[in-house]
Design a protein around this nucleic acid. Structure first.
Lengths: 197, 197
DNA sequence: TCCGTTTTTGACCACGCAGTCAATAAAGTA
DNA sequence: TACTTTATTGACTGCGTGGTCAAAAACGGA
């Protein structure tokens, strides 16, 4: 009936995500996108309304991938504290380049600010999903008496998530992994003074 | 000898800082700057080499002002824990608009990323100055047995500073003050379980 | 083989941007 | 008052940008 599309939309979206993650929204030009995706401008516009829609789709993809990775880790058969540590590691260092790029969601929230509702809806979604995962693991740690501070699992999850945000800022500002890990060690030591190794 | 300058450089720098703080580097156009400062383009160029130099000066000014404010708070005659709380409050809510703008330094680090050495030198300077202040207060809290966790003052200062970074991200992402304060309460409760009210 | 539909392609446009130029104005000095 | 020096002013420039247009190409169906 008609000419079929020659490029893989998911692939292009994924590559665009990498680009936006690395350079941010404003600093990524459409030419950057056509170069990395090898898809011509008009073909992208045929699928995505404009640069912003492509960005929002890329951001949602990032959230889905990240949350899926953390959920996977939370379902492993290790102790709750080890799970928490693994989740933090994965959130901060999901792959090789992440140290330079930081967290796409944090970068984005900071770039767009408090006024952009669509962006902030996405960010809140990620925050709540990550906190839900953290809370579940923390609760199981409390049930096994590994975490005995008097705070609720919800409070601790929000607290830990916040510490992660801070670490993601450090990451982007070029702090060494050792510096970041020291902060994280302190954080864990405060949550589980007896059992944080 | 020659015609004297008509505008106040410090005043223009301060106004530029507000602008950059609100909109970031890339999103602030030179026209934004000439409008808020009421100084014509060429006059600004007469004092500052280019937009970037003006930005760097504004960033340094922000750091100086912020650190001075925190130092002032640290020298008040109240208990160390109250001091810490006051410092955190001042770091997060230095004035009315800060909730929307977040922290200029965190915003900047996230905008420029790990590659910009000049920016990161400035950020590291602020980090180290703030941590030095925090550490001093924490140490006095330890000496008075108000803080009895086993971590060193240096570790706790880095940890607290990191929690502040996280809170600054929440701030910029439009979280409510109540949400932020809850995280901060948890943070203080973990540092000083007995004495954090 | 021809037609209708949709993708592809590259040229194109209007705009906002940082930074520059050259003419003019204003001060101090002699 | 004339001269030197610097600040001011507004017009200008070149570039990169997101987004559009219209022609050409490729496919499926008849």
């Amino acid at each position: 009936m008609s000419r079929p599309r020659e490029f893989d939309v998911d692939r292009a979206l994924c590559q665009s995500m990498e680009m936006f993650w690395t350079k941010g929204f404003k600093s990524t030009s459409f030419e950057d996108l056509t170069r990395t995706t090898q898809v011509k401008k008009q073909s992208l516009y045929g699928v995505f309304k404009d640069k912003r829609e492509l960005f929002l789709k890329a951001l949602a993809l990032y959230r889905e991938q990240s949350v899926a990775m953390l959920e996977e880790l939370a379902s492993q058969e290790v102790s709750p504290l080890q799970k928490l540590k693994a989740i933090c590691d994965a959130a901060l260092y999901p792959n090789e380049e992440a140290m330079r790029r930081g967290c796409f969601m944090v970068n984005t929230v900071l770039e767009f600010g408090a006024d952009d509702q669509e962006i902030n809806r996405e960010a809140e979604l990620m925050y709540s999903q990550v906190e839900r995962i953290l809370e579940k693991v923390i609760r199981s740690g409390q049930e096994r008496q590994l975490i005995t501070t008097r705070q609720s699992s919800k409070e601790l999850a929000a607290f830990l998530n916040n510490a992660l945000s801070g670490a993601k800022v450090m990451e982007k500002s070029g702090a060494s992994r050792e510096q970041i890990d020291e902060v994280l060690r302190t954080t864990f030591a405060l949550i589980a003074p007896e059992n944080a190794r």
